[in-house]
């Protein structure tokens, strides 16, 4: 194979800057989308377990819709279709004046998609706590809201830390899809470096290594969180 290896290219101007900027956008999209996913996901997940049928139905519909449409399609829908569906003035503002349209769109698409997956974890966590404890809480005089606030949510959040770790990792990896709507995050920058320098192996290796490092970092953080949140003597914890 006649390939001109040049690892140094990754550290030369401007390519190093591109990589750094790519990492920054990846973090920006993934972390903001994660916050959005947690807020929406917790609300929807709790909603699915509520005694109210209309609320549970709406929340179930949300999960089925957002979980079953491919993320890439959702990305395109938010970026290309949504501005045409809203009132004219708003659509024009989105297309012309909205700051960082690729970033905002990527956060919304990724956040709302991940929210459907977070909601499922939250729902599973709440049902894992069980009817027995729920009854005990009601029998103790707590209202529905208090039962969620003091009993169901604190326990279920601890139970779902491990599966949430994998959602947290996934949101970083999924953030690479934002390149399709023009956001210059890590994958897009690597692609750009490859095109400018013809050192594709080096560029994509850099991206790979960086993604792995992010994943390891996230895993370690979540493991620490798990250690501090587990309940002594409860469901597989020590």
């Amino acid at each position: 194979m006649d390939y001109n290896w040049n690892w140094g290219v990754l550290f030369t101007d401007p390519y190093l800057d591109w990589l750094v900027m790519g990492v920054q956008w990846t973090f920006a999209v993934a972390l903001t989308a994660w916050v959005l996913a947690l807020i929406v996901g917790i609300l929807v997940g709790v909603g699915r377990t509520l005694p109210s049928r209309p609320i549970a139905f709406i929340c179930t519909a949300y999960v089925e819709l957002f979980r079953n449409v491919p993320l890439l399609v959702q990305m395109f829908l938010w970026y290309f279709v949504m501005p045409e569906l809203v009132p004219d003035d708003m659509g024009r503002w989105i297309k012309r004046d909205m700051p960082n349209p690729e970033y905002v769109t990527a956060v919304i698409a990724l956040g709302l998609y991940t929210a459907s997956r977070v909601a499922e974890q939250v729902r599973a966590g709440i049902s894992a706590v069980g009817q027995g404890l729920t009854n005990a809480s009601y029998a103790n005089g707590f209202s529905v809201a208090q039962t969620y606030r003091y009993i169901l949510l604190p326990i279920s959040f601890r139970l779902i830390v491990p599966p949430m770790t994998s959602e947290f990792l996934t949101i970083f990896k999924n953030s690479s899809l934002a390149l399709t709507i023009g956001l210059l995050e890590l994958t897009a920058q690597s692609q750009q470096i490859a095109e400018y320098t013809f050192n594709g192996f080096e560029a994509y290796t850099a991206a790979t290594v960086i993604y792995v490092c992010i994943a390891l970092l996230a895993t370690i953080i979540m493991q620490v969180a798990e250690r501090y949140t587990r309940i002594p003597g409860y469901m597989g914890s020590r």
């Binding site: 005990a136 029998a139 103790n140």
Partner: peptide, 29 residues
């Protein structure tokens, strides 16, 4: 809710709040 606060109930499987100490189990409500 009001009525249940005035009637104590004890269950077959205890159903203590596992994430709280004994003290908090007794104090919370």
């Amino acid at each position: 809710t009001k009525l249940r606060a005035r009637i104590g109930m004890v269950f077959q499987h205890f159903e203590l709040y596992p994430h709280m100490t004994v003290r908090e189990n007794l104090c919370l409500a």
